[in-house]
Computed example of a mutant assay.
Amino acid sequence: MRNNNSLIFPNVGRIGLYFFLFIAALYFLIPLYLILVTSFKSMAEIRWANILSLPQEINFEYWQHAWSASCTGLDCQGLQVGFWNSVRILIPSVVISVLFGALNGYAMSFWRPKGANLLMIALICGAFIPYQVMLYPLVRITNTLNIYGSLTGIVTIHVIFSLPMTTLIFRNYYLTLPMELFKAARVDGAGFCRIFISIVLPLSVPIIAVATILQVTNIWNDFLLGMIFAGKENLPMTVQLNNIVNSQLSERTYNIDMAATLLTAAVPLAVYFLSGKYFVRGIASGAVKG
């Protein structure tokens, strides 16, 4: 009897787990499905057809309109302007924040300067302070430095807000590396930069992938910081999307709005689909240890 129960209950638990995962997948997939099918429907189909029904034909006209002809106020160049602005913001912000996070984590893990633990606590506390608390002081500081409303200003802001998290990620990963490598390099006469470039960085590929994926997602999806610090000429894609949706004064063109939403989300989705295995591998290699 005991053996029968041991055979039955694991199966019941497994079925329950699969059912929960199925419901969780539907919770995320149904909205994505609605956005996707709506982006291909004409306004007549949207008004009169079933919301779950497939479009009568696949028409990329609304995607093209969202990309190159949608209006944000008096400017009707579509999302393409915001896309290239987001690329110009994203690349330097990710590279600098990941590099500085790696350097900080390396220094706090292997060199451990005086006050490193207090500095780490301060960084962690800073990571949990809401953005809204620091917006006004940062506006005043960037304005004083004459970088407010510029590409340099928004990149600097993203790097500042990213450093606590990237430092924590790299520090926890480096704590899992054998200290003997570091000590052997010191004995051989290698200094701070030599050890970092020749030993630590080659071992950091998995965690660099994790930090890069997180930074790409966070910076690309940012709305608040981009709206405040980027300036009119550098507004990112998320801000442009908001302007397109809220600039319609007559009929609400849901098909164009949905196409614009998917275009805005395409980059982080592509990053996760193409790099998901590296993200999992980096996490498994020690990203959450320490």
Rank of each mutant, 00 (worst) to 15 (best):
A102Y: 07
S285V: 00
A265D: 01
V200H: 02
I46D: 08
S86F: 00
G13S: 09
V216Y: 05
A266Q: 03
N146S: 14
Q132M: 08
S204K: 00
G153R: 05
Q248Y: 05
F229Q: 03
L138D: 07
I197F: 14
S86Y: 01
R186I: 01
N218I: 02
A66D: 07
R112N: 08
K114F: 14
S204M: 00
P92M: 00
T144S: 13
L274Y: 12
F229A: 06
N104F: 15
N117K: 12
G290H: 13
R47Q: 14
N218A: 14
L79M: 10
D257A: 13
V94C: 04
I199A: 00
L262R: 02
M179T: 13
V87A: 01
L54R: 02
A184H: 05
L36D: 00
I195E: 11
A190V: 02
A69C: 02
V133F: 10
G276D: 11
P130E: 12
C193W: 14
L74V: 10
S247Q: 04
I15A: 15
S275Y: 13
A211M: 03
H158M: 04
M1Y: 09
L26I: 12
K289G: 05
P164N: 07
L17S: 13
K41H: 09
V245T: 12
T261R: 03
S97G: 07
V133T: 10
N85L: 01
T166N: 13
S70P: 03
T166M: 14
W111T: 06
A185C: 02
L181I: 11
V200W: 01
G153F: 01
W220S: 05
A184E: 10
M120T: 12
C76V: 00
L263E: 11
I195M: 12
A66K: 07
I197S: 10
K41D: 02
V280Q: 11
I256Q: 12
D257T: 09
T142V: 09
M120L: 15
N255G: 08
A127P: 05
T166R: 03
L26A: 10
S250I: 13
A25V: 12
L262K: 03
V239W: 03
E61S: 14
L263D: 05
Q64N: 13
G115V: 10
A260K: 09
L52I: 04
A44E: 12
E61F: 06
A24P: 04
I208F: 00
Y278H: 14
G226V: 00
P55F: 09
W67P: 06
Y254W: 15
A49D: 15
F100Q: 08
I169E: 04
G153T: 06
I199H: 04
I141C: 07
A185G: 02
I129H: 01
A287P: 08
I8Y: 11
F9P: 02
N85F: 03
I141Q: 11
Y62T: 13
R140Q: 14
G189N: 03
V155F: 04
P10H: 13
V155N: 09
W111R: 11
F182E: 11
Y278P: 04
P113R: 10
T166W: 01
L21S: 11
I8V: 15
